[in-house]
Amino acid sequence: MTDFFIGHVAYYFIVALLVIGLYGMLFKKNFVKKLIGMNILQSSVILFYVVSASKYNATVPVIDLKFGSDPIHYINPLPHTLMLTAIVVSVATTGVALALLIVIYKRFQTLNEDELLERMK
C-alpha cells in the first residue's frame, strides 16, 4: 500500500494542479486570472510528461562511455524533447494572450467577464 502510494503520489499532485488550473479558468471573472489558470494547467501537462519519462537506476540521456548505449541505463529522452518545445511555445502564446488583453482593456476599459458580456450586447 505504501509502495503504491509512493509510486503514484506524483500523479495525484499533477491532478491537483490540473484541477486548480481548471478552477482558475472556469470560476475566476478576471481575464488575467484566467490566463494564470491556463498557465498552471499547461504546467501540469508538462509535468505529467516529464514524470512519465523517469526510470529508476537510470541517468540523464547523455551517452556516457561508462554505460555504453544500452537503453536501460538512460531515462526516456522523447518526452523531454517534446516538452522542451512546448515550454517555449507556451511562453509565446502567453505573449499573444497578453497582447489581446491589452487591446481588450483599451477598447472596453475593463477585464471583468460579466461587465464585458454586458458591454458587448
Binding site: A10, Y12, L18, Y56
Partner: peptide
Amino acid sequence: GLILVYAANELPTRGDPNAPIN
C-alpha cells in the same frame, strides 16, 4: 478531479523500467 485520480491509479508506477513507455 476524482475521476482523474481513479484513472491515475491505473497508470504504471513512477520510474518503472518495465512501463510501456520504456
